[in-house]
Write a protein that binds this DNA or RNA. Structure first.
Length: 155
DNA sequence: GCCAACGTTGGC
DNA sequence: GCCAACGTTGGC
């Protein structure tokens, strides 16, 4: 069964524009156990919203799709990477990466301000746990966001 | 730049 | 296994 997610990224670091250009990208640098455990449940074809955080207007700026299967995060083994995680920072189970395929960039994003007005119910994006960089969404939450985005972007 | 929330580390 | 100290995330 298809699953639904929301991935956060700081656009100055890596934004929807970068993915739109490259078409395919690698989600790496995840150094949180809960997020890693989510990655382990991801399957090709899962839908993922691209959320911009720590920027002037935080919100959902795009849609992508999981491609392939997860694999050990190469940045964890790369001493030149800011995400290098050897020694005591290296867990028994390796940190994981997964690849994503660009699907859509929204001309009008769904801002956090607007997201907070939606009847999403329990969602770590707005309730406690808003520091999680990978957030699972129910199909209802995904559909409500999709519907709202389609209204915002209607021509 | 501040600060609240909360995950992680490490001493005991 | 507890918990204080510390570090990081992310909204504002």
């Amino acid at each position: 069964m298809k699953k639904y997610w929301l991935f956060k990224s700081e656009p100055e670091e890596y934004g929807i524009i970068d993915l739109a250009k490259a078409k395919k990208g690698r989600w790496d640098g995840i150094r949180n156990y809960q997020a890693r455990n989510f990655i382990k449940t991801m399957k090709e074809g899962d839908f993922v919203y691209f959320y911009h955080s720590s920027c002037p207007t935080p919100g959902i700026y795009g849609l992508m799709e999981i491609v392939g299967a997860y694999y050990p995060d190469p940045t964890a083994f790369d001493p030149s990477s800011p995400y290098y995680a050897q020694g005591h920072r290296s867990p028994k189970e390796p940190w994981l990466s997964i690849d994503v395929q660009f699907k859509e960039q929204f001309n009008v994003p769904l801002t956090l301000h607007e997201i907070k007005k939606l009847p999403l119910g329990q969602c770590p994006l707005i309730n406690q746990g808003n520091r999680l960089s990978i957030i699972p969404l129910t199909i209802d939450q995904f559909d409500l966001i999709a519907h709202t985005l389609s209204l915002l972007n209607k021509v």
